[in-house]
Design a protein around this nucleic acid. Structure first.
Length: 460
RNA sequence: GGCCCCAUCAUCUAAUGGUUAGGAUUCCAGAUUUUCAUUCUGGCCAUACGAGUUCGAAUCUCGUUGGGGUCACCA
């Protein structure tokens, strides 16, 4: 049984980097018919936020990830941590330290002054005397004093830490009794039966501390996979300043969950030359031991390309449904199919698609100056009038091809090139010089509207 | 600064110690398109540096440089 987990601290939204580790954990659990758990790391009361967990679940829901079981909140498991801290106290593997913050600060400053590593000096490790008056004690765990701790990491390989370099008897419970991160992570992962810890490699240097806790409590170690960070263009860890880090912003910006997931899974992982991965394929192929060791830079171009790929290959029904979020209601539009077919090849995002749709459906409020100059010349007026007349004389105009035939006829009759009619007609219909095929546009808006728009240009 | 991690085109990446170092995105050019976009074809661009091991190194070893992460009674 493989059990993985996603354990974010409640920051108010799901971070794009968090979504990636969540995705990888999810894939690995599902691939093995295991479990994917969700735990909120809210032991820091000052930052506790109920809504934050909901935001994460909402984002999960949007991209289609589903966690198993109930959400565990560390804030509601305090009794458990106390129990295990007491166990360590009883077995002599942890002890109470009565050093005040002032004393600690002083010690630290002194060590720094000597260019030494700031490190607790174990002064209460074997303390048996009477505790100082009126001091709240913290609980410290007895860390090994020498030797090394090796993290067997599925991504980075064996990483050896020299105990003397990195460890001291670190605090597992604060003076107010609340437990600290490295303690609760280990306790929870063990108690929740997590077998595979897949998380960002910024946690790699925490791992030895957690191993100390596992060992002291006699828990078996999970497998660790520390996946490299996603960097911004400056090569730094992705942060709020880099713009879109909230997963739900991608929904706002018109990205599809498929594209986002596909993009994220390819950051630091690959399967030969394959670029497009459906959820089914990810599930079939993903293995955390294939993850790259190096960080990758987040670049939007690839996401855009993937997104346009998924839009192009999406059914019109589905597109229609997604477009509603962006304010476009097409369910009852009789030319829906023509409209969507004409536009889905052209849009990188759903937002773009919505804009393009409105550009067709809504009569242009004004004609672009440059377009007018380049596309509406002296002879254009006569050509448009001839075309309008031809339309009026036609019956049964429904499909783009029907309109195309009328255009062909007019072009032949006037002995002109397609451009002669196309340019001014485009200005009339769209107000500018670019856009989808004119025959499609006319089929979508219909004869009456087409004539009205031509009229508007002729009389402007 | 200590400790740890990392290093292939601009970017994401591929390459049992043996390939003209491959693919994708971006960019550029051509074709298609009445326009723009799409699509298709082609092109530009990389093994950070220096030693060593080897018949042979992107790949193994060491060093250098560069980048990143982490060092709390935060998570």
């Amino acid at each position: 049984m493989v059990v993985t987990r996603f354990a974010p601290s409640p920051t108010g939204y799901l971070h794009i980097g968090g979504l990636r580790t969540a995705l990888l954990s999810y894939l690995w659990a599902r691939r093995n018919n295991g479990k994917f758990l969700l735990r909120i790391e809210d032991t820091d009361f000052s930052r506790n936020d109920e809504a934050a967990a909901l935001a994460i679940v909402e984002a999960f829901k949007w991209v289609g990830l589903e966690h198993d079981g109930t959400i565990e909140y560390q804030s509601s498991r305090l009794a458990i941590y106390q129990e295990y801290a007491q166990k360590l106290l009883d077995s002599g593997k942890a002890y109470k330290c009565y050093m005040s913050r002032e004393e600690l600060d002083a010690l630290r400053e002194e060590q720094m002054g000597r260019k030494e590593r700031a490190k607790y000096d174990n002064r209460y490790r074997d303390f048996t005397g009477t505790p100082p008056e009126g001091r709240e004690a913290v609980i410290r765990i007895k860390a090994p004093l020498e030797g090394s701790i090796t993290v067997h990491d599925g991504v980075k390989g064996d990483v050896v830490f020299n105990v003397a370099d990195i460890l001291d008897d670190f605090i597992i419970a604060r003076a107010d009794g609340t437990p600290t991160y490295n303690f609760v992570v280990a306790v929870d992962d063990a108690l929740m039966g997590v077998t595979d810890v897949i998380r960002g490699d910024d946690h790699l240097s925490n791992t030895p501390k957690q191993i100390v806790v596992y060992d002291a409590l006699g828990f078996a170690l999970p497998r660790f996979f520390h996946v490299p960070m996603i960097h911004n263009h400056e090569g730094k860890k992705l942060s709020k300043r880099d713009g879109a880090t909230d997963v739900m912003m991608y929904k706002e910006m018109g990205y599809t969950p498929e594209a986002l997931l596909n993009f994220l899974v390819r950051l630091g992982w690959s399967h030969g030359d394959q670029e497009i991965f459906s959820m089914a394929e990810m599930l079939e192929l993903f293995d955390p031991s294939d993850i790259n060791r190096s960080a990758s830079v987040y670049n939007v171009e690839k996401l855009d390309w993937l997104n346009s790929h998924y839009i192009k290959n999406m059914s019109n029904d589905k597109l229609c449904e997604l477009l509603e979020f962006h304010g476009v209601m097409l369910v009852s539009h009789d030319k829906r199919e023509i409209l969507l077919d004409a536009l889905k090849e052209r849009a990188k995002t759903l937002v773009e698609m919505a804009t393009l749709i409105n550009e067709i459906l809504v009569r242009p409020a004004a004609f672009d100056e440059v377009a007018l100059k380049k596309g509406y010349k002296e002879d254009s007026k006569a050509i448009l009038e001839a075309f309008a007349q031809a339309l009026k004389n036609s019956t049964e105009l429904h499909l783009p091809s029907d309109y195309h035939h009328v255009m062909e006829a007019v072009v032949a009759q006037l002995e002109i090139g397609f451009g002669k009619i196309g340019q001014p007609l485009r200005v009339a219909l769209m107000g500018k010089l670019s856009g989808p095929g004119l025959d499609s546009v006319m089929a979508i808006i219909g004869v009456d509207e087409t004539l009205a728009r031509i009229d508007a240009l002729l009389n402007h």
